[in-house]
């Protein structure tokens, strides 16, 4: 699992964005080494996201090499390359800062393949004299790459999205979502209070707990079950995949709560489940390494109106359910 953390994953975004999960994920940029490198040893570039760096070092155990750490603000290579912080300019700057040309006799620098999103090898050569060589996608393939004359086979060049790789993303998704989830839960308690007595705190609490449990179940369906079950859910659009897990969560909710909440309110909870799950699944497109932005835009034009519609209808049913 540590290896799949290496070149890509969203954990870095936690360090950068979410106060809740903030940790010391940054590393001071500059030149580091593993083993005892000499002027002939290879130079590898990476991001200053601590987990990437640690995993890279682990993979390079027993190999003497230089590691040039770029300032990507603690974000992993893939996200940083997309954002433009893992860039040709930053690489050139760190090469110069580290006086790399004086430390090594060769003029080659190994880049993670996914860094190609941000770094242009030709431009690097022009500005620094260093030839950028794209290594494998996974850091775990690096020893094999280095030992085979720096040639990567097709498998090393292909991105994967295994169950383990999806599983590491789940806590990250949840971590990034805690704020909207909290807001949703608060408004749910508020809406649950409306009823024949205009507003009742007792009802807000009692019905609120039911609705909150439904919401958390829907989050499980959309942000946990959908990523894990991704290849086995029908269809290609994520909002439809989330709809399927949401349907199951909604049915469980109906069985658990419709007796106590009433059929109308129960139907509201069911709609709420599929809306939340479908949205969260759609949001997961941002973490997958195979969804194009054009495709996401296309499915969102269908998914968003559906999710918004079911959410509004769910609220109406839920509040109306308090009167009947």
């Amino acid at each position: 699992m540590a290896t799949s953390l290496t070149w890509r994953d969203h954990l870095g975004t936690i360090g950068a964005r979410s106060g809740l999960c903030r940790n010391n994920y940054k590393l001071i940029p500059g030149l580091y080494c593993t083993g005892t490198p000499d002027p002939d040893s290879p130079v590898l570039a990476t991001a200053n996201y601590k987990l990437s760096f640690d995993a890279l070092r682990k993979e390079l155990t027993g190999i003497d090499a230089w590691i040039l750490v770029l300032d990507t603000r603690g974000i992993n290579v893939w996200c940083a390359a997309g954002k433009g912080t893992f860039s040709t300019a930053e690489l050139a700057y760190q090469i110069q800062q580290a006086r790399l040309a004086e430390r090594v006799s060769h003029r080659e620098i190994l880049l993670p393949q996914l860094g190609a999103v941000g770094v242009c090898a030709l431009e690097l050569k022009k500005t620094t004299g260093f030839k950028g060589i794209f290594g494998p996608v996974q850091a775990s393939d690096l020893p094999r790459f280095l030992n085979s004359g720096k040639i990567a086979d097709e498998a090393m060049r292909t991105i994967t999205f295994s169950l383990a790789e999806r599983a590491v993303l789940v806590p990250v998704e949840i971590c990034l979502l805690w704020k909207p989830i909290l807001i949703a839960l608060l408004s749910i308690f508020l809406f649950s209070g409306f009823g024949p007595e205009i507003f009742s705190l007792a009802a807000a609490w009692q019905r609120g707990v039911t609705a909150a449990a439904t919401t958390l179940l829907a989050v499980l369906a959309g942000a946990v079950a959908t990523p894990l079950l991704l290849p086995w859910l029908f269809g290609r659009q994520f909002w439809l995949k989330g709809l399927q897990t949401g349907l199951i969560a909604g049915l469980i909710t109906l069985i658990l709560f419709s007796k106590q909440a009433g059929l109308l309110a129960g139907f509201g909870l069911f709609l709420w489940s599929i809306s939340i799950s479908s949205y969260l699944a759609m949001n997961f497109t941002g973490s997958t390494p195979f969804t194009s932005l054009s495709g996401v835009a296309r499915e969102m034009r269908r998914g968003l109106p559906f999710q918004a519609g079911t959410a509004v209808l769910a609220l109406v049913c839920w509040v109306a359910g308090a009167f009947f």
Binding site: G118, Y279, T285, G286, S294
Partner: peptide, 20 residues
């Protein structure tokens, strides 16, 4: 990004392609 003669056009994605 890596084509020396700009022969390739890709729809620019200046984020990570997520719904948000």
């Amino acid at each position: 990004r890596n084509c020396p003669v700009r022969a390739i056009y890709v729809n620019p994605d200046d984020g990570c392609g997520c719904a948000a």
